[in-house]
Write a protein that binds this DNA or RNA. Sequence first.
DNA 1: CTAAAATATGCAATTTCATGCAATAGTTTT
DNA 2: AAAACTATTGCATGAAATTGCATATTTTAG
Lengths: 249, 249
Amino acid sequence: MLRKERLRLILKEINLHNKVLSGDLSEKLSVSEDTIRRDLHELAEEGVILKVHGGAVSKAFNYPFDGDNKVYALKAKQQIAEKAIRLFKNDMSILMEGGTTIIEIAKMIPPNLRATFFTVSPQVALTLAEHENIEVISIGGKLGRNANIHTGASVINELAGIRVDLCIMGANGISMKDGLTDSDWEIVQVIKAMLRSAKKTAVVSIAEKLSTVQKIKICEFGFINYLITELPPGNARLSPYKSSQLVKL
Amino acid sequence: MLRKERLRLILKEINLHNKVLSGDLSEKLSVSEDTIRRDLHELAEEGVILKVHGGAVSKAFNYPFDGDNKVYALKAKQQIAEKAIRLFKNDMSILMEGGTTIIEIAKMIPPNLRATFFTVSPQVALTLAEHENIEVISIGGKLGRNANIHTGASVINELAGIRVDLCIMGANGISMKDGLTDSDWEIVQVIKAMLRSAKKTAVVSIAEKLSTVQKIKICEFGFINYLITELPPGNARLSPYKSSQLVKL
DNA sequence: CTAAAATATGCAATTTCATGCAATAGTTTT
DNA sequence: AAAACTATTGCATGAAATTGCATATTTTAG
């Protein structure tokens, strides 16, 4: 059998079943596993499959959402993400909310970080799943209408049962006087539960949201350990925000 | 024999069988392998074939799909989706597994359908979320490494607590003799739990997977109410599949 | 942490390939 | 028709590709 022929069969098998094991292919195609590995390596180089320990998986299956969506204020959010990942250390457990900023953080996690992530956002879960060394646990529940966040009593329940080192959350309104606020009651309930589950909490937000207030209160600033914006920590617009334990990044 | 004539025969052979071996041709046409190689080289220069180590393959043979992130056998999966949504009625509760076929179903749900969907797949959840009138509930848990499906004890637990009208699932291996099979133990556990939670079960699969068997058994065909492929229900390839309650779509 | 599985890498045996060369066949020119 | 010339072919040789095995390393699972 020609090598090319074999490569094509492997590709077909992967597209058909979403994943293959080197051992199975070796048996089916009557070549050594070494050869299969070399084949998979080549297909992965071409970018048509995704090689994993033990075999390979279909790429289309793993990235069906690599879309065209433009993110508002992407650059600022990436700057925020760069700062946020400095808080991550090996073997931490980290709870992530949802939103475009937090997805940017998830994308930017260094590949060698070894940690456990909890999240209430399917998008964040999928983004996190692309990293080899991290374990992803979705807190499931009713998918909220407005934001793509799991909400409802089951989420609150599950969150009550976990304890993480760090919680990363966004906030729609940030002001020193009124604390963190949002406009969606369901989401506020979830965020409150997240706060209770975390030893430390970081709030990420583009500067544009500073000094804005939404209808529903999440918490006072006293509960927040880190405030991360795209501004340098010394910027005048951040000077109103201070509390005994607040660190600006 | 004229060289031109030989070239024509070689090309015909490749178009017929999608591949040729230099050795075979040498024997069949009574010329040395060197000559065959020179012939193949020339045809490859013209761009009509693809020369590979050991012989040549047809150009169309090279890659079965064109794009980057295209779904394999998309058209067939869309045909399946069209049939599957015929099972959906207002006010049903429906449990969906994951996979590219099921995502196509989720995309194709009619906008006016009013129903509750449960799913163990973040991607399916997000796809479902685009429909106004349906409620989406994620069954959360550890995100599996191979497929993007929530797995683990918590998923089994949660599934044990729900009862739905219909379960839509894929299967990697389908055969009348061995029933439904898959290759991932974690996923099989989840699917088994899904089966227990559903009053009726539909299996969707492209015809290519028929008569294939994977390592781990999910269940016999007797547990399945609907088998949905892209083939018409009367197709001969479906005739082996029959049980007292099985409906083919 | 430890043991088992999977992987990467170097190596050797085999097969296939490219190239130069000479012999032959076919074509053109004289 | 003979000479000159070009194209084709087979063979020899060294280069390159392919594959399986041995071994060291990495990854995974318990």
